[in-house]
Design a protein around this nucleic acid. Sequence first.
DNA 1: TCCGAGCCACTTTTT
DNA 2: GTGGCTCGGA
Length: 780
Amino acid sequence: MSTGPARKQTISERAMARAQSSGAGKNPDGSAPYLDDLNEEQRAAVVATEGPVLMLAGAGTGKTRALTTRLAHLLFTGRAQAWQILAVTFTNKAAREMRDRIAALVGPSVEGMQWLGTFHSIAAQILRRHAELAGLKSSFTILDADDQARLAKQVIEAANIDSKRWTGRGLAMIIDGWKNRGLTPDKVPANEAYFFADGKAIGLYKAYQARMTTLNAADFGDLLVHNLTIFQNHADVLAEYQNRFRYMLVDEYQDTNVAQYLWLRLLAQKHKNICCVGDDDQSIYGWRGAEVENILRFEKDFPGAKVIRLERNYRSTPAILGAASGLIAANTARLGKELWTAREDGEKVKIRGVWDGEEEARLIGDDIEAEQSKGRSLSEMAVLVRASFLMRAFEERFNMLGLAYRVVGGPRFYEREETRDALAYLRLIRSPDNDLAFERIVNKPKRGLGEKALQTLHKIARSQNISLMVASRQALESDDLHAAARRSLVNFLDTVERWARDAKDMAPADLAELVLEEAGYIEMLKNSKSPQAPGKLDNLKELIQAVSEFDTLEGYLDHVALVAERNENQTGGCAWLMTLHAAKGLEFPIVFLPGWEEEIFPSKRSLDEKGNAALEEERRLAYVGITRAEESVRISFAANRQIYGRWQAAIPSRFIDELPEKHVDVMSEPGLYGNTMGDLASHSRFDGEKLKDDAYYDNPGWRRARAAGARRASTPVQIEGSARAVSVSAPGRSKYKTGQRVFHQKFGYGVISLIEGQKLTVEFEHSGAKKVIDTFVEAA
DNA sequence: TCCGAGCCACTTTTT
DNA sequence: GTGGCTCGGA
């Protein structure tokens, strides 16, 4: 966190330092000193210890501070021992931050908080204690998304279903969806499976779970679902935990899914001291099973709940908050909050229209350099995009400029191929029954044990219900394998067994090194011509480094399964580049928000899939983006963008229209949307020269857009076809005819083949058929 | 068993 | 435009 983008601690460091030095002492008036620097609402959230509490904490309102102080308060006042408090977060990072900040308040007694962690790590902890109640051994392995998909694929193939049409990843997603809702195979409503593999999904789910039991494995979803099953079937176990957790605290409650919600509700039944913290306006993980509903109906679920709103924002200027509030006000499904700040008015939110994505990257690059020359550090600036494919233009441009930047997100260390291979070796050594690990590395590097040999082994294994390792030994006794394969296999098995013996009296890091070397894995990479090979070798070195921090192999493997951390090499002085999702919880003085175009943001695909609910989630994502900024927000949109190698015309995002005019400042290049527009369009908000600010909002196009906006507010589902300032042409009849020859600035000449309202399908002479908005072309 | 050409599909991704 | 996956020939 210290070199990370977030600098939240600055606000409260003073208070923390004071609290730490004074411990649980008292002010002269008898109040606790650690409460002094909290504002009234924060203090209320800290001292309301009994009964259910919902803390609605807007962006930048000092949530973590209130939350950690609350935990410290419970300890200071002796209401609970450290081990009687359950505190759950979603990310390891959040858990770590919370632990550190509580430690700053209470000192070493934080060590006793063994139930502070992520949903998954705590559920795993509980499951290990009662694994046999879920049909597992307590040494079960935790599978990640990749393993899940692989396993799902095997299940599909075993059922003789075409695994190209119905992919393992697809099935894994469906199963995940069910697990997110706490549904075991017997509880899935029958009508929910019809769309996958002719309705066989439930059967496949059953088979998948059977496989999991055989493998003694649990995926992420299982951790929670098994917990639920155990709690529901074993009242004594549930009672044990209900009694233990006198106080519960949940961070980012708006992101909980149904399974997590059920889990919390079961555990809270006894003492009912549950404090959920969240912000309905920042719920952006609906597509992963998060239910905003959980936070919206908290007061119903927990009768008598106190609701405390943190609305004083310490992060952003009034202009930024005003823009963000105005935007989010268009959502209907919200509890309602109004952020305010005591800060001085700052610059307005800048909106800029540009010709295409490359120009956008160029201008943002220029802006960043300009700010840098004014004395800003690069690390104070961030570019936040809707989707990772939008990052490329920026990376290219920044590389060209030699501008130091850092991408947050992307492939994570433990998801990389080479790391996963190395881990598979280690897992196989620890548990020879781990078929997934066996399969992964038996022929990596190449040992002449390919598909054919593996099939043979699988057949033996399945017929006798034994692991691949055991099946391999048997295969050696028979003639099922070629002599060459047999030789190779003997060698492999013996080596693995020797490693297992070595493992007993070797430091895990040394073992890892030995294994990678002897397996020929290092050599394979050294001989590889692939440009990625040196990087992979570096990653393996890093892995060995990571292993060396553990005393036992078991300890390390367990850590890895649940802590899939990003490989963040800490280098200061970089501009930040990340997705909006990755930016949640962070803050930066200057934030660039490119790509605000219809179909990209809001994402067409989301809207197609989930309609208005998705639109609201996209809007929350926009809200998250804007509220990351402390001083300056710069939104941009491009009239053209290359997506997957094809040029696409785009119109500005509806979210731009939704920003309150008094907080924004529009700069746009002349002629962006062509010069053939009708009367209404010729003075669009995004066309023409820079006028005086006020004039921007006093023209026919803008007035019309406002009227449309007002209508839109009353009819929430209006995804296409609304008349807005930016969709320049008059709706309805097009002035073009099918068969007419037209010219487009980017695509050149072509002939219109289809007209749908203002959308034309044009067969371009050089770029093929494309859909364009009619104002982008002119008669040729 | 291995390798390259051709084909498709492609958001967001805390654990 | 790119990577991941499959199929056909060496």
